[in-house]
Each structure stands twice: as structure tokens, then as C-alpha cells.
Design a protein around this nucleic acid. Sequence first.
DNA 1: AAAAATACTGAACAAAAGGGCAGAGAATAA
DNA 2: TTATTCTCTGCCCTTTTGTTCAGTATTTTT
Lengths: 204, 204
Amino acid sequence: MKKVTARQFDIYNYVKEFILLHKYPPTIREIGDKFGIKSTNGVRDALNALERKGLIKKLSNQARGISLPQSVFPHVNAVNLPVIGRIAAGTPILAEENIEETLTIDKAMLPRSSEIFALRVQGDSMTGDGILNGDIAIIRMQKSAERGQVIAAILGGDATLKHYHPTEHKIELRASNPKYHPITVSKSEDFSIAGILAGVIRKC
Amino acid sequence: MKKVTARQFDIYNYVKEFILLHKYPPTIREIGDKFGIKSTNGVRDALNALERKGLIKKLSNQARGISLPQSVFPHVNAVNLPVIGRIAAGTPILAEENIEETLTIDKAMLPRSSEIFALRVQGDSMTGDGILNGDIAIIRMQKSAERGQVIAAILGGDATLKHYHPTEHKIELRASNPKYHPITVSKSEDFSIAGILAGVIRKC
DNA sequence: AAAAATACTGAACAAAAGGGCAGAGAATAA
DNA sequence: TTATTCTCTGCCCTTTTGTTCAGTATTTTT
């Protein structure tokens, strides 16, 4: 009652492949032709069984009304995000001219429901956190950060990763590579937080 | 004669989105309902125009017989690869029971034409190379490696990342965190190379 | 200004596709 | 063994969907 028979599985597979190939499901008769089933009811029985067993869903009285609960289309778990190289002075981060390329990345890698972009890391100032020159940093866009977090800081025309250490009147941006000294910026300076670090991707 | 009108483009867009959403094309009447076109022939005209202009293809006498020449499915440049957690003794790396989850990753991140898998990093032995505990290492499967390369080594039941330093009779596996001493294995031991490091992914 | 294309209505028709009923042989489960 | 499920035929019916014809008003192109 629960097991899917070989025949049923064959038919399920055909439906799946048909959809992948044609971008629409087959009709009952198309399935019948494929498997040499002369009666539409033969196919109907099989489809009903597959529906009872939860492999497909039938939309009643609809042409090509077979749908698959789990999407058979691959890559649904991924999103494209823009990779930012340099930031042209005065432009918003996601401005067309700043986007170097796009990267496809698994949704599991991303924080939910927030704007994301990627930043190509230049320099070795964050090697203490395992962030190397040439890495791609995934940044969750937000205007504020907590003490000690790694932020993408916009300073002049460049975006850099640094630890965020605000004091009353100034903000200290610390590298995690001891050979770099902290940078201190006053709040009036041309500085802003682009977002905080959400991930790192490296190609070796 | 060549330009697509605003109306036609709206209809084209609706068809596109409909397919993305439902995995099958809309019927003429569904399009008509959406746009308040009461006659099927109204829609037909629009579809014929779209076909003349090469945006869609109509399959005659077929239910839901609209197809789009270029796939509208975001054929993102990505592949799915298996993430390996622990390696069950005696099993091949890609055995079902070793696969913890799958990850979608951009093709640009991968070396071309070779078998790839991902390995969840356990421990801090490779922090000197910016590889932290919990990171996901992308491994290109191969049986041999060059001196100094970072390899995924199978030792007993576990896979670990280490620098490969072979000598005449033994193999030295070096961590990049100075607090760990090199491991020396003889060639007869239960050791093998699973592959070499091709990338790193970290979720912060 | 004339011709062509656009953007429809409305009606009728034909083909495609889904659904249902009765039945039957074979395999499976109870 | 008996009951149930599976797999299928055959036929008929209904709904859905595509196609065609006749026409109209508007816009665009030539």
C-alpha cells in the first residue's frame, strides 16, 4: 500500500524527465504511448497510485496537470549575488558600475531575509581571521554593527574588512594581522558601514 | 514589424513568470483572464505576434503549447556537490552514508572537469592557511599530490586536511597551526589521499 | 492617404486531454 | 484461501484548450 512499484516508479521517472526536457508535464495519453498503455485509464490508475503515495500531485481537469511536490528543477537552493570589486566614489554599493561579476551561492550559506553582496578581499590585513587576499567575503548589508564584529567599511573609495571598535568620539578599525596598526576615523569622516561579514569563499 | 509592443511584452513576461512559477505554460484562456482579454483570439493574435518576433514558439494543437526558445529557467552557473562529514570505515568517500548534505556552488569556484566534493573541517590544525574549524573545504578528487600541497588525507576513519610532505619511505602530514606536530605515516599504513584543496567556504 | 499591423469582440468548432464506469487477469498481502 | 492491490482494456462522456472565421476600432508604418 505504501511501496511504489517498479512500474509506477518508471512512470514517475518518465514524468520527471519529461518535465525537465520540455518544461511542461506530459499528458495521460503521452505517458500511455510511451509505455504502450492503450487505455487512458491504465495511466490514470498509475498516476492515482503515485498521488496516493505522495510522489506527484494531480490538478484536476487541467491539461498537463501533473505537478511534482519537490521541484525537479535543480539549483533552486541557490541565489545569485553581486561581487563588488572597487567602489566608485559617491556611488551606492550595488550600483551597476561596482558589480564585477555575479556568484551563485547556496542559500544555506546566507542569513535569511536580508540584502547580501560579495566583496573581493584585497590585502592581508585580516589573515588572523582566516581571511586571505583574494578571498570573497559575503557581506550582509546593514548600517550598524556591534563592537568587535567584522565589518565591511567604506573609507574613501574603498571597501575594506576590519574589526569594528567604536569609542565615544572616534571609531577604531582594527586589522587582525598584527603587522597592521589600527585605523582611527572620526565620525564626521567619509566613512560608513556597508555591512557585516557573513561568510568567506576562497578559490585555491 | 520587428519591435515588440508593450502589450506583447507584458504578455510575454506573464508567460515567462507563469512557467517559472508553475513549471508549465499557461493556456490561452489563462492569459486572457489575466489581461482582461475576453476573446481567445485576442490572446492568439498577441501570441502569433510574439512567435513571429521569435520570443516564443507555439506547438500547434497542444494544450499549454507555448515554449520559450531560450530557457527561462535560471540555468545558473552552479552545480551541486556532496558535503562529507565523517567517513565510515571502509566505504568509498562518496558513499551514500558519508554524505551529510549537498551544497550548491558556483562553477567559477571549481576546477574544470574533475570530480569534486566538500569536506566539513574539524579542528584548528590548518588555521595558518586561513582554514578554520567548521569551514567547508572544497576538494578535487585525485590520488596523488605534489609536495607541500594541502591534501585531504584519509587516516583511519577520518578525513583531515594537511600539507603533504612525502619522503622516501614515509609521508609527513604537516598542520599549518604551529601548536600541532607533524604526523608521520608509513606508506603501508591505512592512509590515502582523497584529493587536494580547491577552495574554502565559511559561514560566519 | 493608404496599407499594414495591433488589439481586440463574439461565436462556433475541433482537437486534446481528463474523468468515470465496468470488467478482467495477475500479483501481493492478510 | 481470500481479499486487496496492481495493471490494464474498452468505451463513453465532459471539460479544457486551441483554431478559425467575421468583424471593428486604433495605431503605426509606408
